[in-house]
């Protein structure tokens, strides 16, 4: 049992990778509702490097966590049985699909409906990935994690983080958005924060009922509600910043701050989550 910080590399992974992936939801919106012209689309495609980098950074975190990353290809052996393999595969499926999308887009091979269709698929895959990120922690022998709330919160974090990051790309690309965009961004981000908070909060509220020989799960992370609050505040602040930035064409300066704020919030929540590790017995 530790503070959760011993899993910091994993927290980096589960913060950044789903955030990067889910930013495609906002991108989908930007393309579907914003109907960018070719030039803007090109800029958007270039700035799509940002979510890609964020995702890669997340995967680097996952790699850092491994004691022997050289054997990493072996993870496919566990597909279907190991939730970790499933998670990695879900992430890779998304990554490969996103890469194909991006290459085609940069090469100008995507237009209109194809692009939009692709983006919708990627949005769905991003959420599926987030679901698998949560599923990876549902192990029968870890009662504190073994709850659908582990999934719910991951989906929420992905949506919150992804929305902010996605609109950051919009801002960086100076893409013109419809009038309702700030409200949409705000709504998406807040829904993410809400879902994340409900997932995490309900998990915390259930800790009292879980004990092992060392004591109650409620005692694992004494400041757990503080971490929850940090996430909620960061999430709302980032959503607010996004809305405010939206009024100024998603001003990149604001959006970068918003990205950092939301990432910090999610990271803090993830650290809390790992701190809640507790086995059935020992």
């Amino acid at each position: 049992m530790g503070s959760g910080f011993e899993h910091a590399a994993l927290a980096v992974f589960t913060t950044l990778a789903p955030m990067g992936a889910a930013s495609f939801i906002a991108l989908a919106y930007a393309f579907v509702a914003g109907k960018p012209d070719a030039e803007t689309a090109k800029r958007l495609d270039r700035w799509t490097a940002v979510p890609a980098i964020v995702m890669v950074a997340g995967f680097v975190g996952a790699f850092m966590h491994l004691a022997n990353p050289l054997n990493a290809f072996g993870v496919f052996a566990g597909v279907g049985s190991s939730p970790l393999s499933n998670e990695i595969v879900a992430g890779l499926v998304f990554a490969v699909a996103a890469l194909v999308y991006w290459v085609l887009a940069l090469a100008g091979k995507l237009s209109g409906g194809a692009r939009n269709g692709f983006l919708v698929v990627l949005s769905v895959l991003a959420l599926v990935f987030a679901v698998f990120c949560g599923l990876a922690y549902m192990m029968g022998t870890i009662p504190t994690w073994n709850t659908p709330l582990s999934i719910v919160q991951m989906v929420g974090y992905a949506l919150a983080g992804g929305t902010v990051l996605g609109f950051c790309v919009v801002g960086l690309a100076h893409a013109e958005m419809p009038k309702g965009a700030p409200a949409v961004a705000l709504a998406l981000a807040l829904v993410g924060v809400l879902v994340g908070a409900v997932g995490f909060g309900a998990q915390i509220a259930g800790l009292d009922a879980i004990r092992n020989i060392w004591g109650s799960a409620a005692a694992l992370v004494p400041a757990i509600w503080g971490l929850f609050g940090t996430f909620a505040v960061c999430g709302i602040v980032a959503a607010g910043l996004t809305y405010a930035a939206g009024k100024k064409a998603f001003s990149p300066a604001f959006m970068i701050v918003a990205c950092v704020v939301v990432a910090i919030g999610i990271f803090v929540a993830r650290i809390g989550f790992y701190g809640l590790y507790m086995g059935v017995a020992l």
């Binding site: 004691a67 072996g74 970790l84 022998t141 870890i142 086995g279």
Partner: peptide, 24 residues
């Protein structure tokens, strides 16, 4: 074959496996 992901360590309810980072 082990990648040292530590999932066995997390999952085992007998506290048995442990990832030795030096050994990889």
């Amino acid at each position: 074959r082990c990648i040292g992901c530590g999932y066995c360590e997390l999952a085992c309810p007998y506290g048995n496996p442990h990832v030795d980072r030096d050994k990889g």
